[in-house]
Simulated scan of single mutants.
Amino acid sequence: MPYLLLALAIAAEVSATVSLKLSDGFSKLVPSIVVVAGYGVAFVALAAVLKAGLPVGVAYALWAAIGVAAVALIGVLFLKEPINLTMIGGLVLVIAGVTLIELGAAK
């Protein structure tokens, strides 16, 4: 159950972050509402994940890595943001770092 809640937290945070870009400085109503609601859901879900016993380091590492990768991918695919090999390398390193945190926490 904690990982399902973490998935909800990540999805809400990614939706809120993308909507932040789409809100155009909070000048567009619907994306602005998604920003506030998305971050609210994300933090409530993350709090439930931590209450359920998932270690904070593991939960936050997964949240951060998956969130960064998802927002970057959405930016490239839908918002026409540029990407290059250096950025791809950085994303690979973030994911590798979280994998190492997960492996270390499993011991």
Results as ranks from 00 to 15, higher is better:
2 P>M: 08
3 Y>F: 10
3 Y>L: 06
4 L>E: 03
5 L>I: 04
5 L>C: 03
7 A>F: 07
7 A>Q: 02
8 L>E: 08
8 L>G: 06
10 I>R: 03
11 A>H: 10
11 A>E: 09
12 A>R: 07
12 A>Q: 07
14 V>Y: 04
15 S>Q: 08
16 A>D: 09
19 S>V: 10
20 L>E: 14
22 L>I: 06
22 L>W: 11
25 G>M: 06
32 S>G: 14
32 S>C: 14
33 I>F: 14
36 V>S: 13
38 G>P: 07
40 G>Y: 15
44 V>E: 14
45 A>D: 07
45 A>Q: 03
46 L>W: 02
48 A>N: 11
49 V>F: 02
50 L>R: 01
50 L>M: 04
52 A>K: 01
54 L>P: 00
55 P>D: 07
55 P>S: 06
59 A>V: 01
60 Y>H: 04
61 A>W: 06
64 A>D: 11
65 A>T: 04
65 A>N: 08
65 A>D: 07
67 G>H: 05
67 G>N: 10
68 V>G: 05
69 A>P: 03
70 A>G: 04
71 V>R: 03
72 A>D: 12
73 L>Q: 05
73 L>I: 12
74 I>P: 00
74 I>H: 01
79 L>F: 09
80 K>T: 07
83 I>V: 15
86 T>Y: 00
86 T>I: 09
91 L>M: 11
92 V>T: 11
94 V>A: 10
94 V>F: 07
96 A>N: 07
96 A>Q: 07
100 L>I: 13
100 L>C: 10
102 E>R: 14
103 L>F: 04
104 G>P: 06
106 A>H: 08
